[in-house]
Amino acid sequence: MSTTILPKSPAPAQQPARGATPAIRRSTPLRRRRSLAAWGFAAPFVLLFLVFTAWPVISSLLMSVTDIKSRDLRDPFNVNFVGIDNFSAVLSDPLFWQAARNTGYFVVVGVPLVMFVSLMIAMALNTGITRLSGFFRVGYFMPVVTSIVAVAVVWRFLLKEDNGIINLALGWFGIDGPNWLGDPNWSMPAMIMMAVWRSMGTLIVIFLAGLQGVPASLHEAAALDGANAAQRLRLITVPIMRPTLLFGAVLTGIGYLQFFEEPFVMTNGGPLNSTLSVSFYIYRQFGFGNYGIASAMSYLLFFAIVLLTLLQFRLLSERDPRPRKKARKASTTTAPEGSTR
């Protein structure tokens, strides 16, 4: 009895204390009216959001623990709870692991590559090409606005073994280009090449904006002290650009983990499943009517996205681990005092 009263009694005492300053400034009826108006503004969005985003996300989780198939749509009582059976089925499916490896390959090679290329171009555009920088930026950005499907159709031709212009260009340098999309070893590099081409424009624009925040005076000082370009990049540009790089990495990583259109149009997942991505495999399972399996897979992909994002935050946010731990400790010690709980 006393235990139930105890946690309750401080709450009302602290609640007005916390909200004291705002409560004095505005009267409660006015605030309530504003709240009502605000929810009026929010209503259409929230309604659409609940129906077409929140509900599907929850419902996907529910489906992932059932044996729902497409034919059960007419007969909902036929659906059974199967616990984690779908997840264990997916995780013991060698084709899923193949798809996961392919997707991992795409991300692990593609994201650093496109980040590096974009940063180099952004830095080149930032070093004094004042007049033409806008022109170049527009040019490099062009592929971003185009449909991946259309672009993939075109690249299918560019990548042809015998009469594609990529192998033609390689031939000028005496290189006998591979059968890009027909060889399991080259299909993924070909797709990464196309993805870099298509997505570097976004990163160039983001990095250019970030580079404006790197003071030229720092570079001058470092150069006078004898630092070469590579050292200045590592010790000045990258540390200052870290938040921007993090944003770029997270954005690209989330996008690349979901790659789907490229294999759909260019290879149909082949040759020998070498370009089967997780998203594409989910789509196939959906096409077969295995809704429960597809949902379980999509949640595993979601999980991978969260993991990758956390990893990127670890790698790219503040370098020094010690001060951060201290800061975190400080915040945890102050937290209980600040909040009511």
Partner: peptide, 12 residues
Amino acid sequence: TMMIPGVVMLVP
């Protein structure tokens, strides 16, 4: 929700 992949919502 900006982080949730589109395929998660596809089936439901």
